[in-house]
Amino acid sequence: MEHYNMNLTLKVWRQKNATAQGNFENYQVKNISSEMSFLEMIDVLNEQLNAEGGEPIAFDHDCREGICGSCSMHINGRAHGPWDATTTCQLHMRAFKDGDTITVEPWRAAAFPVIRDLVVDRSAFDRIQQAGGFVSVNTGNAQDANCLPIPKDDADLSFAAASCIGCGACVAACKNSSAMLFVSAKVSQFALLPQGQPERTSRVLNMVAQMDKEGFGSCTNTGACEAECPKEISLTNIARLNREYMKASFLAE
């Protein structure tokens, strides 16, 4: 791969804290290598701000391998930026060219209040999981693992749903700020497995109730979530969630 260097203009959302008014600031960065990751480019900018006596831009990140779900930048109008199926930390500067202007914003959703700059509060996701995203089995209760054969196709589908990283891009991408893709991923993981059956009804009802309580919007099937999801969580999970929910509501009545 040919390397090249580029100079860029960055328009970055700055906001001191949850209650402060935020605004865009413009910055110039020079000699950015096409080999860098997007976050390494932000590192360069932060070192520059630091040297000039400014305050570095706050952003969430940890693994930088696309798996922890921490990173969360809205780049040029797309959650996680221009590459499909890619987290912000895995986006590389090869995606840009010399002279580009790049706009960087936090996730925007009422249920994800801004903490500072590009950092938002996604604890609503944890609370949804706490409402039902588990199989109630105490440590020590398990039988031998192979006593429970699971058809490979079911296991694979369940795994595909379970690979959601909880980043929140689906919410950020959705005009209604719906969390359906995220919730459907967890509900599907268990609905597809025999271990998930005993609590199938209560799980979906409780998780959906918590989702509504957190102030996420409703799903109008626009599919923006699937398009921006870095882990390619499929919309079929939302369909499954709807079925599960209907069935559970019926049973609960």
Binding site: A145, N146, P149
Partner: peptide, 22 residues
């Protein structure tokens, strides 16, 4: 060995063979 049992009971989707075994 008990770790694998526990994780499977929790619904951890480990890779499987076509026969359904881990």
């Amino acid at each position: 060995a008990a770790i694998i049992d526990q994780c499977v009971a929790q619904g951890v989707p480990f890779a499987r063979e076509y026969g359904g075994m881990l």
